[in-house]
Computed example of a mutant assay.
Amino acid sequence: MRVAVGMSGGVDSSVSALLLKMAGHEVIGVTLRFHTIPESCSTDDLRVCCSPEDVKDAAKVSEKLGIPHITFDWERIFKERVIDYFVQEYAEGKTPNPCAICNRDVKTGFLARYLREAVGIDKLATGHYARIVEYKGSKVIAKAEDKSKDQSYFLALVRSKDIDLIEFPLGELTKDRVRQIAKEHNLPVAEKRDSQEVCFLMGRKPGEFIKDVVGVKEGLIVHSSGKVMGKHTGIHNFTVGQRKGLGVAYHEPLYVLQIDAKENKVVVGEKEKLYRDSLKLLYLNTHMPINQWEDVYAVVRYRSKPVRVKDIRETQDGGYLVEFEEKVWGITPGQVCAFYEGDVLLGGGIIAQV
């Protein structure tokens, strides 16, 4: 089988390539370059992926493994499909999940289709901690065996038609075992730190990044009662559920309840006002027919507590209303709502409103 491996320069994708080669497949290393970083900007202390240093590391690993390595300069594609989306969502008062969008539109689903057409691959493998399984007659994504590292949530927007092209070699392994394999085979990235930051932020907070793009736009911070509490320098500095850094004083803790982009104001209030028993999705991306869904629960933010779903139904505007069996705290427009049945990822959508 001819398999391309999306190599980010980290230990996970490197071990994925190693395992596939050991299994006898024809392996091609593929790296996407998303960023041009000035020499004056050091990434040594940043835990980001897809930097120029990562591209070099991916090439070193490919040479060590004796596999061909291709680098695509997709900086423009990444900006148009991920960064511009990120900025626009914050401008609309939402808190986007750029990694989920990237997996759908750039480096996983889209890349798999692109490579199939461009170089005739059979599969695209990545270093995600997730699995591909057969379930109720469909090929779907499932949680990794190592639940502490599971990344299936970030794959909820990947189109069902792309799943057949994807492999996750690390789905049955723990992180410790992956590092052990890298050390046993003397991979040059065996001790490399994991990337945890949103790559294009380069260590900055989202608000700091967006300020450089849109500038300062002052507005009001208002209590849910209508009382003006203070001013802000941009709604992009806030997210629903935020408590710290509000810049206002009150006799009890306040949280961001709503971000009103039209009025350029931030509404704050008490914690209990953040509980909701439903949400609205812009659309629903399904990995298997929804009429086969049973015993469904949802995850409304990465690492959030799963909540049982009572009902999902389409609305007149083409979105979906999701109702829960209990109230959920801090549902945030712009985030991904992922649906599961046991360990199986059923699909997901982007939260429009609560």
Rank of each mutant, 00 (worst) to 15 (best):
D212R: 14
V213C: 09
V213L: 10
V213H: 10
V213T: 09
V214N: 03
V214Y: 12
V214H: 09
L220M: 12
I221V: 15
I221Q: 05
V222I: 15
V222F: 10
S225T: 15
S225V: 02
G226Q: 06
K227H: 08
V228K: 14
G230D: 09
G230F: 11
K231P: 01
H232K: 10
H232N: 10
T233Q: 15
N237P: 00
N237F: 15
T239W: 15
V240H: 05
Q242M: 15
K244Y: 15
K244H: 14
G247E: 07
G247Y: 06
G247K: 04
V248P: 10
A249R: 13
Y250Q: 01
H251M: 04
H251R: 10
E252R: 15
P253S: 06
L254H: 04
Y255N: 06
V256G: 05
L257G: 04
Q258P: 00
D260P: 08
A261E: 08
K262C: 01
K265N: 09
K265I: 13
G269D: 06
E270F: 09
E272I: 05
K273N: 04
L274Q: 02
Y275E: 04
Y275Q: 00
R276D: 03
S278M: 11
K280E: 11
L284T: 03
N285M: 11
N285S: 08
H287P: 01
H287T: 00
H287F: 00
I290N: 01
W293M: 01
D295Q: 11
